[in-house]
Amino acid sequence: MAGISGVPGATGPNVTGLDATCFDEFWPASGAEAYGLGRGEFDRLLLRIGTAQNYGQPQGATASRHEQEGFFRGLRLADLVLARACASGHEGAWEHFLALYRQPLERAAMAITGSETLGRDLAGQLYAELYGLTTRDGERRSPLESYRGRGSLIGWLRTTLAQRHVDHHRRTRRELPLDDAPEGCEPPAAVPEPETPPADIALLARAIEMAIERRPAEERLLLAAYYIDGRTLVEIGRLLQVHEATVSRKLRRVAGGIRKQVVRNLRGWGLSKQAAWEALGVDPCDLDLNLKKMLQASSPEAFPEKAAPQEKAAR
């Protein structure tokens, strides 16, 4: 246990209960020795990652010894060690990294951008960042330092590529000249008068807003991905690791639940059942509803602590 409890950063009650044999088992399996990573450094790395994530437990909760061990066993130690060795500039690690991930990274970049040229550019930019061409305070920084081994390294690389691409797209879209604005952005020439009284329409909009806000996060994700992003059932199912038929059923259920909740809300505000159901037949164009904004505003969580400084510096 001396190798763990004595390391800097390995403080607190979470660490002292961990069995040293667990780390003894991880050490040879990680292959850290091949990249010149010492045992003490390896232990410190794991403990730093564990404490930073609170071993996968909510903030403030104390992870038990079993939970800590489970957290460590879930880490991709070989990928983690390779990433750290690359970040520290180990040549052998870079050779191994390039042999493993060069082609997959380029393919992923092409798939994300949908263009071979843009994909190669994107992959080249990420290589430069990963290699640590960016310096801060005179020290070489690599985004690989932010990899914590909870998923695969290739998955992390793909996600990082996607982040770069999306951020670039969002930045450049803001600079789009007005003449090139896509169709649909133009307001309608004439707004027809709605047949339903505006008071009822406002009531309906409020009822919908409340109904959506109360849905669980997964259902809101389904709504947003399907109706706002236009993702297919297959894509959503792949993300949630369920079959597309399950996604379809869930979507139907969510839509039905929202409809019922809207009626309940309207009836709670004094409308009769028939009037409430009739209100659902209002032309959506008459509703002053921004579903996208509504879904975004309903998100209760932000991740200030997850904004990696390396990524911000890279931007």
Binding site: P104, R107, A108, A109, A111, I112, I154, G155, R158, T159, L161, A162, Q163, H165, V166, D167, R170, A217, E218, R220, L221, A224, A225, I228, D229, R231, E235, R238, L239, K292, L295, Q296, A297, S298, S299, P300, E301, A302, F303
Partner: peptide
């Protein structure tokens, strides 16, 4: 997972990132 789910349910950027990464993985 619940926290991330709640975030990406309301964050179009992160949804796009996740879906693009998934698409790249599927292509691979």
């Amino acid at each position: 997972r619940e926290r991330i789910l709640a975030h990406i349910a309301g964050c179009g950027r992160c949804r796009q990132v996740v879906f693009l990464a998934q698409q790249a993985a599927a292509d691979a």
